[in-house]
Amino acid sequence: MDARVKLVASLALVVAVVTLRSPAALALALAGTGALLLASGLGPGRLLRRTLVVFPFGGLAGLALAFTTPGEPVLPLGPPAWGLAVIGAGARAALLVVLRVWAAVWAAGLFTATTRLDEALRGLRAIGMPALMTTLAALTVRYVPVASGEFQRMWRGRLARGFVPRGILHQPARSGLGALFGMLFLRSLDRSERLYRAMLARGLGHPARPVRAGPVALTHALAGAALVSFALGLFLWDRGWPW
């Protein structure tokens, strides 16, 4: 599907799911986005790994809510002197937070997990993201492996000359690591200078005509409209409309 359509549909779904109030609507959102992700070729393993990122964030927030929301305690924990208990209303709020984050991650995954980087950047540019931001994102993705390769080579260079790392508490290891990061920074600075020159050499600075993206295919537009309708339907059902 066209990245622009996916981006808009995915955004609509994210906005819709974070406003849902009923677990049933959130469960439906999860079922729908999960089915779409599986249908798009994302295997159950990758889907599960994406889901795991929910818990450090949503889980912690939910945990705090479960104990701090005002209401009746339903499950005391530890000795009574601690005064620690799960609150009924807090447990419901925690469940909603976790489900919302989960559904939002899956809804965003409809775009991020199924779109190549270049298409994603084009999509972002098409909906108005400044070129500077998309270029920075592209350069980061492109040069992280290059910087990581340089770091590995320098690290191996140390190992090859008898350096034995003994954990982060080991002073020579700490200072060596600091020196490596410093060197990596300087090399990256040099590389950025060379990259800029290479861009100049290919005409950076000419008043270029912006490349216009082609039209969205009708089938893609219809599929996108269906996804936006699903998001809207979820929202209306959650609010009890039209019944």
Partner: peptide, 27 residues
Amino acid sequence: LVFQDPDDQVFAPTVWEDVAFGPTNLG
């Protein structure tokens, strides 16, 4: 100008976009 280290020159997310960089700059 073709630079010595291609990592200094080939920067775009895809090969196609990188090759298109120059002609696009020409407008």
